[in-house]
């Protein structure tokens, strides 16, 4: 009951449901939404079957196979944080050793359910790691941009902000007014002119 020899109708041939044989491993490379069993590629999602021409890096390479995958929706692209992914998180609480956050977005995709994360003191910045004081970097309520280092233990994802582009992207000052970035470790209140300490992110792109 493969998708290929199922029927003569071309429209149903281009659609797969989980468990359908999509192609043979000798013809295609498996992509997202598929898995390999034996010498065949099977679908693990339902949807349209799409093929992509092979990426040729150099002509000396041996002939690359075209990729085959199941058409993805926005939904399943990034729904859980993986190590290396960029996340937006809200600071929940701080203590002298670490700061607890809840992850609200992964790679610019807003999450329906938040995940818990932790930023350890030594992962906050790359410069003068030993002199970091957490309350001069993050305050509860700040929105930070961070990178996932590892999946951590049972509870938390371990995050880092030790890059110029990572750190606080949104914070409110004592008066409740959103702060403006002043320099890399200070933010300024546009109303009173007071500055507060934060580990400020150098935001390059606009985050949707």
């Amino acid at each position: 009951m493969t998708a290929k020899d199922n029927s003569d109708n071309p429209s149903t041939n281009s659609v797969a449901i989980p468990g359908n044989k999509v192609a043979s491993l000798t013809d295609y490379n498996p992509g997202p939404g598929t898995y390999i069993s034996g010498n065949s590629i099977f679908a693990s999602l339902s949807g349209f079957i799409r093929t992509e021409p092979p990426i040729v890096l150099s002509e000396a390479d041996e002939v690359q196979l075209p990729h085959i995958h199941i058409e993805m929706h926005e939904l399943e692209k990034k729904c859980i944080p993986q190590s290396g992914s960029l996340v937006n998180a809200r600071v929940i609480s701080i203590n002298p050793r670490s700061c607890k956050v809840s992850i609200i977005a992964v790679d610019n995709t807003y999450l329906k359910h938040t995940f818990r994360g932790i930023v350890r003191k030594e992962d906050i910045r790359a410069f003068q790691k030993d002199q970091v004081e957490i309350d001069k970097c993050y305050r509860p309520g700040d929105i930070i941009r961070a990178r996932v280092i590892s999946l951590g233990e049972a509870l938390h994802y371990v995050l880092t902000t030790a890059e110029n582009e990572l750190g606080v992207i949104f914070a409110k000052g004592g008066t409740g007014v959103p702060l403006m970035p002043y320099n890399w470790e200070e933010m300024q209140c546009p109303k009173t002119g007071n500055t507060e300490y934060r580990k400020v992110a150098k935001v390059k792109e606009i985050i949707k």
């Binding site: 989980p18 468990g19 693990s44 339902s46 399943e76």
Partner: peptide, 11 residues
């Protein structure tokens, strides 16, 4: 599960 587009080996 199929409608939720959770990856499954088979129905």
């Amino acid at each position: 599960l199929i409608d939720a587009r959770i990856e499954v080996w088979d129905i």
